[in-house]
Amino acid sequence: MDLMLQSVGHSYNGQTVLEDISLDIPSGQIVCLIGPSGCGKSTLLRLIGGLEQPGAGRVLASAPPADSLNPLTYIFQDFALLPWRTVAGNVALVLEDHALSASERAAIVQDVLARTKLSEFAQALPKQLSGGMKQRVAIARALAVRPAALLLDEPLSALDSQTRELLLDDLVDLWTRQPFTGVYVTHNLYEATRLGARIVVLSRRPGRIRDIVDIDRPLAERAIGDPALEAIQKRLWGAMRDEALAADRELADGR
């Protein structure tokens, strides 16, 4: 599914957080949004998925494939799993409102748990799982509704660096097997260069597009310590450093 932002702007309580964001997100590609904390990148993601209404401009999407149950599907930083449901129950939750037979539903749950290597944990409760496993459950849940675009809100930020590396590989595998449209919000330059076909750098508040970097190298060929990727990270950091420094010194309420 193609997504298009047309001069999107947003403000909270009279304070502008996003200004004049125009962006194309082509089908089958992952676009990474990076920027210093408080630049409105998570807000932008909520605007893209319709969880918030833009104060200005428009968010447009092409018609999703007919078999998609929930075209714009989120993966959250804090996993957002129901603690009282098992792994299988958490995945089933998002299917229960759709007209599916019990056997179809069970088949989907089984399929996505197998794809995320969670089959043996189907009956476990979230509290029994590590952070990485919880995020895998959230990924399985997102895949269950056959999304046309995945909206990932710092999905690896709550995880330790080893787990993060493993999940990055999983995401790359998933994309390689079946390329999906993705918007990936992160503050981590390395994650952005591993996953992004295009990296959009936002300035600090009010967030504007500062730079757009395209990376041609296929996802499967990118790895830790790749000098080309590191050069891009260095360039991005050069663009962001002063902004990050200024953002760090800002008071939360902006006064």
Binding site: L51, N70, Y74, F76, A80, L82, L93, E96, D97, V145
Partner: peptide, 24 residues
């Protein structure tokens, strides 16, 4: 609120959100 937001983002009906997220 994050769980409710999650329910909305997956298109759950109002009734489902109340029954399956708010009540428990």
């Amino acid at each position: 609120r994050g769980l409710i937001r999650m329910g909305q983002s997956f298109g759950l009906s109002w009734m489902s959100i109340v029954r399956k997220i708010v009540l428990p």
